[in-house]
């Protein structure tokens, strides 16, 4: 049994073991570099002062969230396309959406923490903030659908279709919220990018952040995928075990 599990384990990873290790190591190194550059090496912003350093986490987190949801959509489409249909894509979609939700939640938290010192409020009805919040709830719904137990194929189909429906809504939400905040408030009080042309060490730090969060996404994906794979197997074996137990060990 444990041998069987070991076999299952070897096939369960998304990345080859060595590659996974390298990604993990690079993730840690880049997070260390981001912390060093973000907190010490980069200069404080002229307008925003130290508070601007939150950008080095906020923007990469948002980026990683978009990547994650993009992958969810792509994997769902690959599942729906009969020629590429595979349980792999279902697991990838689910794992990526969950990680994306974590990153979206983090983006909102960080945005709030950034907003307080810069805008003076924890929450502002900024177009991007609002559409990110709606995005959060859209994918919360997607994961709620995923969590409903069903036959693997039924669940996979249902999830894949939901992912596509949800994704279609993203640009509509984005446009509508954008219009809402620009048509009705001619002068936007604040602009999330108070200085769009960031240069030198600050730009470098931001790039390090993007690299770090992308690597972190890959590393988390690798683990979360493996977990999804193992839990699927567990569902099967646990059912067998329960039946075996009920029947008093008689097969």
């Amino acid at each position: 049994m444990s041998e069987k599990r070991q076999n299952r384990d070897d096939r369960s990873a998304l990345l080859p073991r060595a590659v996974g290790r390298v990604v993990d190591a690079l993730t840690l190194i880049s997070i260390g570099a981001l912390t060093f550059f973000g907190l010490w090496a980069s200069p404080a912003d002229v307008v925003q002062g130290d508070a601007q350093r939150i950008m080095y986490l906020h923007v990469p987190a948002a980026w990683a969230a978009y990547v994650a949801f993009g992958i969810t959509t792509l994997a769902s489409l690959l599942w729906l396309w009969p020629r590429t249909r595979s349980a792999v894509w279902d697991r990838v979609a689910g794992a990526s959406a969950e990680i994306g939700l974590i990153f979206t939640g983090l983006t909102l938290l960080l945005g709030s923490l950034w907003g307080r010192p810069v805008w003076g409020v924890w929450w502002a009805w900024d177009a991007r903030l609002v559409s990110t919040a709606v995005l959060f709830f859209l994918y919360l719904g997607y994961l709620a659908i995923r969590a409903v137990p069903a036959e693997p194929i039924v669940r996979a189909r249902r999830s894949a279709i939901t992912a596509v429906i949800v994704f279609i809504d993203v640009p509509i939400v984005h446009f509508s919220v954008d219009w809402w905040r620009t048509l009705h408030q001619k002068a936007t009080v604040f602009n999330p990018e108070l200085n769009p042309e960031i240069e030198g060490v600050m730009a470098l730090t931001l790039w390090i952040g993007v690299v770090a969060f992308t690597l972190l996404y890959v590393s988390l994906m690798n683990r979360r995928y493996q977990l999804a794979y193992l839990e699927e197997g567990l569902e099967e074996t646990a059912l067998d075990a329960a039946i075996l137990q009920r029947s008093g060990g008689v097969k």
């Binding site: 907190l39 508070a51 983090l106 960080l110 950034w114």
Partner: peptide
Amino acid sequence: DAGFVIASWAITGLVL
């Protein structure tokens, strides 16, 4: 401001 920066790094660490 520095407090907010520290808090943001701490929260990121905690969440992730």
